[in-house]
Amino acid sequence: MSGRTDSDTQDGIRTDATEVHDTDDMPRPGAASPGAASPGADDPGADNPDAEDPHGDDPEDDEYAGGDARRARWTAAGTGALLTLAGLAAALLRLTGSAPALVPAAYALGAAVCGLAALLGSRGRTRRALWLLIAGVMVMAVGDQSD
């Protein structure tokens, strides 16, 4: 997912950098022009990782990015596992009662979807895991409403 909604944005929204690079005769960013020195030859901070980044990226942001991703994976996996166990427990309780067969089946299907979400969340697919968690809980709720 690139985050771009569509390719035909209005001219007022586009940045100057993308308008400049829309033509084929202009060099692409990062591409060396013929006869140019190697990248970083004129940049004294190219070999120094502590030098100020000209693009405005803060090196400390990269440090927190790993922690945020790890926290998102643990949250998705933990929530998926918890909802899976809750769905299976509800399916077993409804199976022993006098509820129609659709109710425990809906709980079991919702638990399976939440289990898949936990698996995807542990592998880093947290957006998909979030949507699967929502879908799994909705399946359980629809099954509960049919009781």
Rank of each mutant, 00 (worst) to 15 (best):
A90I: 07
D22V: 04
A108P: 04
A106L: 10
T5S: 05
D68Y: 14
D16M: 14
M1V: 12
H21S: 09
A101P: 06
G115C: 11
A108V: 01
L95D: 04
L93I: 08
A76G: 13
M1D: 01
D147M: 12
A129Y: 02
G115F: 09
G35C: 14
A76L: 07
P39L: 13
A72V: 11
A81E: 04
D57R: 13
A106N: 09
D50L: 15
A86L: 06
A81D: 05
R71I: 02
L120W: 12
C114S: 05
A37K: 07
G45V: 04
A17Q: 07
T84R: 06
A105F: 09
P59I: 02
D58F: 02
L83S: 01
G124R: 13
A112R: 09
G87M: 03
L116H: 13
N48V: 14
D43P: 12
D147L: 15
A89G: 07
D147K: 15
G67E: 06
V103M: 04
C114E: 06
H55W: 14
V113L: 15
A117W: 07
M140Y: 05
C114L: 03
P59W: 04
H55T: 11
D144Y: 15
R128G: 02
A65V: 03
R28F: 01
T126H: 10
V103D: 01
S7T: 06
A99M: 08
G80T: 07
A112P: 00
L119H: 13
L92R: 09
L93Y: 01
R73Q: 06
T96I: 14
G110N: 04
P100H: 09
A90M: 09
D16G: 14
A99N: 07
D22G: 01
I134F: 02
G121N: 12
S33F: 08
D57S: 04
A77L: 14
A111V: 06
D24M: 13
G12R: 00
G40K: 02
R125E: 15
R94L: 15
P104Y: 03
Q10F: 02
A106I: 00
D50E: 14
A31C: 13
A36P: 05
A101L: 14
G78T: 12
G136V: 02
S33M: 05
G124Y: 03
S38T: 03
G143V: 09
L83C: 01
R94K: 11
D61H: 14
